[in-house]
Amino acid sequence: MARVLVIGLDPAKIEGWDPAPVQAAIARGQARFDDLGIESDMCLVVPDENPEAVIVEALTSAEYACVVIGGGIRKHEPLLELFEKVVNLVRRHAPGAAIAFNSGPEDTADAAQRWLS
């Protein structure tokens, strides 16, 4: 069975806003993986807490058919350098994995499924 890794920002550790709505959306997105029968792992990072090491650990913990990089990392311009690092870490540590992008936490499984079919 194909396995998917989702890499995103940890909403609980971003200051200045309520993480509950994002956490709820992530939970709904994870439930969608379950509904589709797709195994998935989450790798939630904090930009100021050595995210590269956390991502490498996640990428090397299993064999992934697809890695979804979340919008929090991709869309926030101050995180452009982190986004580049994530893409290159995926290429280096999971070279056989497709890379997918979601539009939000709830369609993450659909983003992965485009590459798993």
Rank of each mutant, 00 (worst) to 15 (best):
R3Q: 11
G71F: 03
T108F: 00
I55F: 00
M1C: 09
R92S: 02
A12F: 11
I99W: 10
V6W: 08
E49L: 07
R28I: 08
D35C: 03
S117H: 13
V87T: 05
L89R: 11
E52V: 13
I69Q: 12
H93D: 08
L59Q: 01
L82Q: 01
M1R: 11
P51K: 14
W17A: 10
L80Y: 06
A100K: 14
H76Q: 15
P11F: 10
G96P: 04
D48P: 05
D48C: 09
M1W: 08
L82E: 06
P19F: 09
F83E: 00
P47Q: 15
I69F: 02
V4A: 04
V54Q: 15
S40M: 10
V6M: 06
D35R: 05
P95H: 13
E81H: 04
P47K: 15
R3V: 04
L80Q: 01
A27L: 02
A94P: 07
E57Q: 15
A100E: 08
D34C: 02
G29R: 01
I55T: 01
A24I: 04
G16F: 13
R92F: 01
E49P: 03
L79T: 09
L5S: 02
H76N: 08
G72Y: 06
K75G: 07
V54G: 05
N50R: 04
S40I: 00
R91D: 00
P78W: 10
A111N: 04
A53W: 05
I73L: 09
K75P: 00
E57C: 00
E84H: 14
T108P: 01
L9N: 13
G29H: 06
V90Q: 04
Y64T: 04
N102Y: 01
C43S: 12
S40T: 02
S61H: 13
M1S: 15
P78T: 12
K85D: 12
F33H: 08
W115L: 04
A2K: 03
L44H: 09
A97R: 08
W17Q: 10
V6T: 04
A65K: 07
N50F: 14
S103T: 15
S117T: 13
P21C: 05
V46H: 13
D10F: 06
H93M: 03
G16T: 07
K85E: 03
D48V: 00
D18V: 10
E84S: 08
G71H: 11
D107C: 05
A20R: 14
L59S: 02
D18E: 15
L89A: 12
R32S: 07
V56P: 05
V68W: 03
P95G: 08
Q23H: 06
D18S: 12
S117F: 07
S40C: 03
P19N: 06
N102C: 02
A53Y: 07
P105V: 02
V90K: 00
I73A: 07
P47E: 13
A94T: 01
D18A: 13
I7N: 01
M42S: 09
R28G: 07
W17T: 08
F101A: 13
V6A: 11
S40Q: 03
V46W: 10
A111G: 06
H76M: 14
G71I: 10
P78R: 15
V87I: 10
V56S: 07
G16Y: 14
K13L: 13
A53E: 14
E63R: 15
V46L: 11
V45K: 05
Y64I: 07
N88V: 00
A25D: 06
L89N: 13
P47L: 03
D35W: 09
S103M: 09
W115G: 00
R92N: 03
P105E: 14
V86M: 02
F83W: 13
